[in-house]
């Protein structure tokens, strides 16, 4: 595999995870549990849309076929999207959103920490910029895991159930294929294998503080690297992409 093809693919993966999670969080706008939290979730959503835009711009440049970030966001189909399975899961109640956010934020925190050392200067710079935002996201979701876990009996049950339901999608975060292998060898990509232990330790530590149980090891869903998704992604894309696809010649 050529490096620039692998790099294009790699950028899509990073971008898509941010884009899809940003899209999900945007669904909360106007419906949050309290006004202050509505504003917080929208801020985080905006950060993700921002990351995605920058990464897709870079992907388009690496590809060199004259596509734009919007072409990549709006004119790829389900199987061409490479976001991790976790982020496409529906918002559910606030506990589910927070659980999904915390599991992903923790991953992204350690992953982007490593990515700042990338030999690809653009990726390293993007990672440095994003890392500050991710640090805040993790603080926000961690604080909420604590409050829901150690809040009322109801909130405890809700967040524990949410964690249990989402757990089977966490293995996918750390999968590797030849794209990862090649780019890790070149010093461009971060190694998900090296992030896994840190992720696990941090999650376990926070769950303990929040009086929550680590779910038992379970059979993991995988496939995001090949664009094999859960059924939810198709609906999300149908909604997100319908306008540019209906009017392919239009500029907005």
């Amino acid at each position: 595999m050529e490096i620039h093809k692998a790099l294009f693919e790699y950028c899509l993966r990073l971008a898509d995870s941010s884009l899809i999670l940003g899209q999900r969080l945007g669904e909360w706008c106007g419906h949050g549990p309290i006004l202050e939290e509505d504003i917080a979730l929208t801020n985080i959503s905006l950060d993700f849309v921002g990351h995605a835009t920058a990464l897709l711009q870079y992907a388009a440049k690496v590809e060199g076929k004259g596509r734009t970030e919007d072409d990549l966001a709006y004119h790829r189909s389900e199987r061409e999207f490479k976001n991790v399975l976790l982020v496409e899961q529906p918002n559910g109640d606030y506990a589910k959103t927070i659980a999904r956010q915390f599991l992903f934020d923790t991953f992204q925190y350690y992953y982007y920490q490593a990515l700042q050392e990338s030999k690809d200067e653009t990726l390293a710079a993007l990672a440095q910029k994003s890392f500050k935002e991710i640090t805040y996201h993790l603080r926000h979701s961690s604080q909420w895991v604590l409050r829901l876990g150690d809040g009322t009996a109801e909130s405890h049950e809700r967040i524990q159930n949410a964690i249990n339901d989402l757990w089977m999608f966490t293995g996918d975060l750390f999968d590797m294929d030849e794209v990862d292998a090649l780019l890790i060898k070149e010093g461009i990509a971060a190694d998900p294998g090296q992030v896994k232990q840190k992720w696990n330790d941090h999650v376990a530590e926070l769950f303990k503080k929040a009086t929550l149980q680590m779910p038992a090891p379970t059979y993991m869903q995988r496939g995001s690297r090949e664009g094999k998704h859960t059924e939810h992604l198709g609906y999300l894309l149908a909604e997100m992409q319908y306008l540019p696809r209906t009017f392919p010649d239009a500029k907005w």
């Binding site: 669904e27 706008c29 106007g30 959503s45 921002g50 919007d70 709006y74 997100m240 319908y242 306008l243």
Partner: peptide, 25 residues
Amino acid sequence: ITRAPSLRRKAILLAKVQDEAGHGM
């Protein structure tokens, strides 16, 4: 927000609707 036709428009709309929450507050 979920149907905004470009990434730029999506970000602008998110920021705008968020401002409205802030103004309400």
